[in-house]
């Protein structure tokens, strides 16, 4: 197999068989790939896409939760939520930094996000309608994200793996924060408990979709697993998530909205009902309830911030000119 591709940050080389075999041997040997190392263009492109999508998800993910920062019901919750949403911004920043080591700038990635060409996790195209959603997002969305992210700490690309280690360390409070909110509601008044159940009902399916399409339909999985960018398939992670979550819901006295959900003694895991993949693709393709508003909000922040960034750069240029005199 021959393909002409870009290698590392700025080199070019021919990806002949020998090169690809040597690269795969490094991966199989669990060696980390670092920014200046030779890498197949496909590997680089896969990482740019995946890290970029991951970063965008963190950034867009600030919006649904940010939507409740000003309405948090207690000062303690307000501070925790603000710190959590701030963390999401930090995680986006770490990830953009990791992608930048592959030769794409944050500005380029941002442009792709705000012109609608870049993808991000479809879960953030759903609205946060009640305070309970803040708990549900922490519990389930962050729970699902952690399932995805822990294996990424061992990803073959060094900067991505290091960013993920930092992220996972910081995220450990996010899910607990969410679960505590849902638990408080579940143990509260009937209205609060109903709020928690209604939120779970709305988010359950979209959360299961977070792991991506079924293995048979996911065209990126095989190669990503081989390159150790991904360590588990979508369905494997989804199953792990369901198995971990069902007992947590039972503890809360909440009902997972799936009549087909039941323990499978033979498999030692939960069977669960079909997922509405038509809805998934509809949302991915831009027709979720909040796609337009999410992208518009990011575009607005970016456009309205332009004069601020320009001013800072202009000031720096003036100071440099003065220093040169």
């Amino acid at each position: 197999m021959y393909s002409q591709g870009l290698i590392g940050a700025d080199g070019r080389t021919v990806e002949d068989e020998e090169f690809l075999t040597r690269f795969q041997a490094r991966i199989d040997d669990e060696q980390k790939i670092e920014p200046n190392d030779e890498m197949p263009e496909g590997y680089r492109r896969t990482l740019v896409r995946q890290i970029g999508q991951h970063a965008h998800s963190e950034i867009v993910g600030m919006l649904p939760e940010g939507n409740w920062v000003t309405r948090a019901p207690s000062l303690r919750r307000k501070a925790s939520l603000l710190a959590k949403v701030q963390d999401e911004g930090g995680h986006g920043l770490y990830l953009y930094s990791a992608a930048e080591t592959l030769g794409v700038s944050r500005e380029q990635m941002t442009e792709e996000l705000i012109d609608g060409t870049a993808k991000y996790s479809s879960i953030f195209n759903y609205p946060t309608l009640s305070w309970a959603d803040i708990g549900t997002i922490g519990w389930l969305v962050d729970g699902a994200a952690i399932m995805n992210q822990i294996p990424l700490c061992r990803c073959s690309y060094g900067p991505y793996a290091r960013a993920m280690i930092r992220i996972c360390k910081e995220e450990s409070f996010h899910q607990r924060q969410g679960y505590e909110i849902v638990m408080t509601l579940a143990q509260g008044s009937p209205a609060q408990k109903a709020m928690a159940q209604e939120s779970l009902n709305r988010f359950w399916q979209p959360v299961l979709m977070m792991f991506g399409p079924p293995d048979g339909e996911s065209r990126n999985t095989d190669q990503s697993v081989k390159w150790k960018i991904k360590r588990f398939t979508n369905d494997e992670l989804r199953q792990k998530f369901v198995d971990a979550t069902v007992p947590q819901a039972e503890y809360l006295g909440l009902t997972i909205p799936d009549p087909d959900l039941k323990w499978n003694e033979q498999r030692q895991g939960y069977d669960f009902g079909p997922i509405d993949w038509d809805e998934f693709w509809r949302v991915v393709k831009g027709n979720g309830p909040m796609n337009r508003e999410r992208v518009a909000a990011r575009r607005k922040a970016w456009d309205e911030g332009a004069w601020v960034r320009e001013a800072a750069l202009a000031h720096a240029a003036k100071r440099q000119a003065q220093a040169a005199e």
């Binding site: 700038s105 500005e107 442009e111």
Partner: peptide
Amino acid sequence: MSDDTRNQMPRNLMPLW
């Protein structure tokens, strides 16, 4: 992202530290 957009940096790039 296509390969040939890689080196077209947008204007007013914030320096990286």
